[in-house]
Design a protein around this nucleic acid. Structure first.
Lengths: 255, 255
DNA sequence: CCTGGCAACTCCTATATAACAGTAGAAGAG
DNA sequence: CTCTTCTACTGTTATATAGGAGTTGCCAGG
């Protein structure tokens, strides 16, 4: 392996290219250690800062992870959670548990839900538009962080019109068997359809921390609006999840 | 604005925080210039490299763009293309044009398609699984880059079982009115359903270049499988698009 | 009027150096 | 045998310095 300092391509990128290649071709398996910065610097005959930048490139691409004091290793990818639209059909919902709990159960991961906030808030624009109400008018929110397999999987905020949840367990920590959708249906709002909107982007600082995201991992923001048989939006589910742990699947008719 | 060199938080992150704040609060509007590296270095009393790293952080978060010789400015976001599942219903398909052309038309952007490859290739695993054939057996591929508004919007590879396309315009540069789906239906394969699978990730080097992606912009990989009324997979559409230009919307029943 | 060239600005790559901080294992004390 | 401390490794932040290269505007000379 040779580095050409006179090439158009900067040295640190050439070094990054070299290791990207090894990783892509599988010669460096997930979990395998890369040389330390000092070693790179010696073997390629470059300054320490240059070696460091090469690793930085690979880090930012999400190919490797580095731990302070331990070194840099090829990233291991955990299992992917496949979120299929069918998970929200009535039959599946009737099986008990909320949607997320069922998903985790099917992957054999233990499930936990951490309540971050529970109460009334003024509706943000994004939510108000979908609930067909005025921006800033009060709505009830369940803000929580979902855990699976000991890791944070998603941040999920559920917003409800006030009149639909007053006096129901939805306003309490435990929404009861079958989750909040079951409560809404008991109250006479039979669910007719869902709309899901997805958008991928890089996480904010806060999201990075609270989802424990590695550098270079994007997130997917999913907004689901639940519509009842009367055409009324009864819930807006606003969530953010790590892109490297989730895959989304939708089946729909061609007619 | 003050920087504390003795804080836990590194100086370069403090500087980045400062400008992230200004951008989030709208005090630095899209298109507005940030101070040059030299200016930052002077006004904050830090070394040039430190100022540079602060800007690097913002760049990697996709908040700013910098051009060599011109400086760093707050990123401007183009319009988002909303890809709704309904765009593939028969009624919409009948309106003429392929799906993508119609989408671009509705946004008022001019549309172009650049053919990259047209011919037989051995089926990659991902494709073979979905077409229900052996990995490596020959399939026909239309590999192209779609343009909208003068910018590359997506890389799209369509894979077909050989027997379905032989002797049809699908094997030619122009697949004819209504696109390849129309040709498949003419041949007796009436489309029954689609499955779309989405996954977000950071782009590869090649994708970055050919989609002209700015640093810090993720991509969405969308794989669509078209199924005919006989339950046979007749096309796998494998595409990659810039996450900051696309939003995905799916409507589905709750029953 | 236009053109060529220079100057001053911008960012980019690379070097060398220093002090600090987390990790792991070996050496020593109890 | 166990606990502590030391040491040699790892990465992290920050400094200073140098030369390269793209961009813009001005100004002198044609």
């Amino acid at each position: 392996m040779e580095i050409d300092p006179n090439s158009d391509r900067p040295v640190f990128k050439q070094i990054a290219d070299h290791f990207r290649d090894l990783i892509d071709r599988g010669e460096l398996a997930p979990g395998a250690a890369l040389p330390s910065e000092a070693q790179l610097s010696r073997t390629f005959g470059v300054a320490g800062g240059t070696a460091r930048r090469a690793l930085e490139v690979l880090r930012s691409e999400g190919l490797v992870v580095t731990e302070h004091g331990r070194g840099t290793r090829v990233r291991e990818r955990g299992p992917m959670l496949r979120l299929a639209s069918q998970r929200l059909t009535r039959a599946n919902r009737a099986a008990g548990l909320g949607g997320f709990a069922a998903d985790m159960r099917s992957l054999g991961l233990d499930y936990k839900q951490e309540m971050l906030h529970l109460g009334e808030v003024p509706a943000p624009r994004r939510i108000a538009e979908r609930l067909n109400i005025e921006e800033g008018s009060p709505v009830f929110v369940r803000r929580r962080r979902m855990w699976g397999g000991g890791e944070p999987m998603q941040l999920a905020d559920s917003y409800y019109p006030l009149d639909l949840v007053e006096g129901t367990p939805i306003t309490e920590e435990n929404a009861g068997p079958g989750g909040s959708y079951a409560r809404l249906e008991e109250r006479g709002h039979r669910l007719a359809s869902f709309r899901e909107e997805l958008q991928a982007r890089m996480p904010s600082e806060g999201e990075k921390k609270s989802l424990r995201l590695l550098p270079g991992v994007p997130v997917v923001a999913l907004v689901r609006t639940a519509i009842d048989t009367g055409g009324r939006a009864v819930e807006v589910f606003d969530s953010v999840m790590s892109a490297d742990k989730h895959l989304f699947q939708y089946d729909f008719a061609a007619d």
